[in-house]
Amino acid sequence: MPSDAEIAPAEPARQGRERRAAGRVLHRSSLRVLLRDPMGALGLILVVTFVGMAVFAPWLAPYDPLKLDVMNKFQPPSWAHPAGTDQLGRDLLSRIIYGARTALSIALTSVGLAGIGGLILGMIAGYGPRWLDGILVLIFDSVSSLPMIMLALAVITIIGPGTDTLILVVVTVSIPAYARLIRAQTLGMAQSDFIVAERAMGASGARILIRHLLPNVVGPLVILLSMDVPIVIMLEAGLSYLNLGVRPPTPSWGNILYDGYTSLRSAPHMVLIAGLPLVLSTLGFTFLGEGLRDALDPKLVKGGA
């Protein structure tokens, strides 16, 4: 792909054509738009911070998050323990950092799997034969009529709580939403001239799907996925808070929040410290999603210079 500098300056395009400037999903000028937007930039910084925390947890955490030190329980923040300690004397900062690992591994895995599943099913529904589309849409509608929390509770009752259960529930519930988005995009695009042109040239269905439809329909999905990550993080925290998610003693923001709640009077810092990363990561992914929406909007990419 040629760099922007190699492309001769475009002649003034007509207004209507600007929409087609969608270009590549995230090329340089999109990134520039994202960083120029303070919210988007903040979102990106927060997300990168949390991902860094999760990836480098063993190096960043000052203590072992599972190491008990009952003599020093309920310590308020101090130089030795910047975020204090919990009811078993474990270092809270370390637990928060490891909690990022738990939260992100669950959220990114489940949203990623659901995104891939939704992409494939949505494109099949949108470009495949009509009868298959009918069946798939029926399935999407049935599944998405189940409320996520209720389904989660039901599945947990049957197969027990844990990370895998959480991921399974999130993937099941999210696929229809993603698939519907992709299906709508694909249906709309399948009628567009350039797809008809490909067919007229004799291109096979597989080639049209992969080379032409796929790159043109994923943009909106990326935005939706980014904005759904915090929902999953909250769900994980919520279920862990109810003792239905990640099993203790694995550090999870929900678990820490629960522990803090039970000792709210003696050690109010725990709730605050466990709530903070939850709030910040939610804001981070949401800002990033909104920033991406603007950054991927070709009108802003073109006219924003």
Partner: peptide, 16 residues
């Protein structure tokens, strides 16, 4: 070969 009324729209937007 088929030539389209809207030639620009008949070109895949992500292909040079």
């Amino acid at each position: 070969a088929l030539m389209f009324q809207d030639a620009a729209a008949s070109l895949s937007p992500r292909m040079n």
